[in-house]
Design a protein around this nucleic acid. Structure first.
Lengths: 225, 225
DNA sequence: ACAAAAGTGTTGACTTTACACCCATGG
DNA sequence: CCATGGGTGTAAAGTCAACACTTTTGT
């Protein structure tokens, strides 16, 4: 590689995270409002340009912390985006991540050096976003749906354990489908994502529900036949 | 984004393709030998640095053409790699692609401006590659295995149609598993990847086999329950 | 007529779906 | 004792796995 070739100059990398939460019966994504050009005043996903002294995931985490205040978050890589015109400033390639957090547990910054607002937007009410973030978000939603049935991504919503009814509600919201209670329980247990604890959780006036915990590690499933 | 911030300088993007073929009972990947530093004389996957006037896929295609002579190839995006030290020259983020082609149909260049050799290497005999290409390749093999059961990626091996026995051999090689002939046929037909033509293919001294064609478009499968 | 490879159907095992009643708790 | 939501089992349907014989062709 000839480092000084003009064709290699002025390239950069965006790290963009679709941060999801589930609340009030709907899946929401964290949107932030830009304080600078380009797309000043536009809503976008959380992210920004990668520094040359940090790896992809650390860059995504730094951007998340700077622009939202959120720390200690687990990321899953989604896709890469490289259309020539995806940023008006400079040639930028974007690496997209997804994350899921409990919005109750974090305090979102509404005003930072680069952002003037932030909110949890229901995914069926997302406005026109800056850059190619609508496309990135749509792919991320599909990836989230795939991840909840094969990874422990939901663990972050339930760090202290979860009951079957809670879990079922969450699946129903994210996948936008209803399940039978008995069959859901069997299916989830067969996926081997959670372990029984021997505790129960009491809510008012109801039978206590068993508490389960997400496994630390999930083994890969077999592919075919 | 402050374009002149030093932290954004000197970043580049690699586009790397694991080009597979299936022959002589084994899956092979195209390796090329580097003619320049870094990793002069080392075997690597097909790829190089993206230009700032081409999008990701076009960049990958250009690199493939330049370094191997192969044209008209379909790519599937795999993962992104961003460790700080993955290139010794400069900070490079890699976007990985996979492709599958019929090695009989192409003539691989053995000597180009940047390469001094090229060969189809059985995937169980891959040497230590330059950069992080062993890691990229291992992920690509898994992705290839996923793709053959949900996409028409195998079409490129059989542009003129394929018979069940041929297809079965290919699946068995790529997935490294044996299948029952009757069950394989049922499974493949249920995957809706191929269409019956009403022709048969004669081989010497055997019963002619029905010829199938890969569909142009494959619809996505449902996720859960 | 025989060798070589292709085509095909059925049964049992397993998995998935549909469905209804009892239980524990707080008020 | 009642209202609320949680827990559980079974039968029917569908899917998957195992298995052997017949067909077509060229020699």
């Amino acid at each position: 590689m000839e480092v000084n070739n003009k064709l290699y100059k002025n390239q950069g990398i965006h790290v963009i995270t679709s941060i999801f939460t589930v609340e009030q019966g709907t899946t929401k994504v964290l949107l932030i409002k830009r304080k600078n050009e380009p797309f000043l005043g536009k809503w976008v996903l959380t992210g920004g340009a990668l520094y040359n002294n940090e790896d992809l995931e650390n860059g995504a985490l730094r951007e998340i912390k700077e622009k939202t205040g959120i720390e200690n978050i687990e990321l899953i890589q989604s896709k890469a985006y490289g259309k020539l015109d995806r940023s008006p400033v400079m040639r930028m390639v974007a690496i997209s991540y997804i994350a899921l957090i409990d919005s109750q547990r974090v305090n979102i910054l509404k005003n930072t050096r680069n952002t003037s607002d932030a909110y949890w937007c229901p995914i069926d009410k997302v406005p026109a976003l800056g850059f190619d973030h609508n496309e990135i978000l749509n792919d991320a939603i599909k990836e989230l749906q795939k991840q909840i049935i094969k990874s422990n991504i939901l663990k972050s919503l339930f760090p202290n354990g979860v009951t079957m009814p809670e879990l079922q509600k969450t699946y129903e919201i994210i996948l936008n489908k209803k399940f039978d209670r008995r069959n859901f329980r069997k299916k989830i247990l067969s996926l081997n994502l959670i372990d029984d604890t021997n505790t129960t959780n009491k809510f008012e006036g109801n039978k206590p529900a068993k508490v389960y915990k997400f496994k630390k590690k999930i083994e890969d499933k077999d592919i075919f036949l």
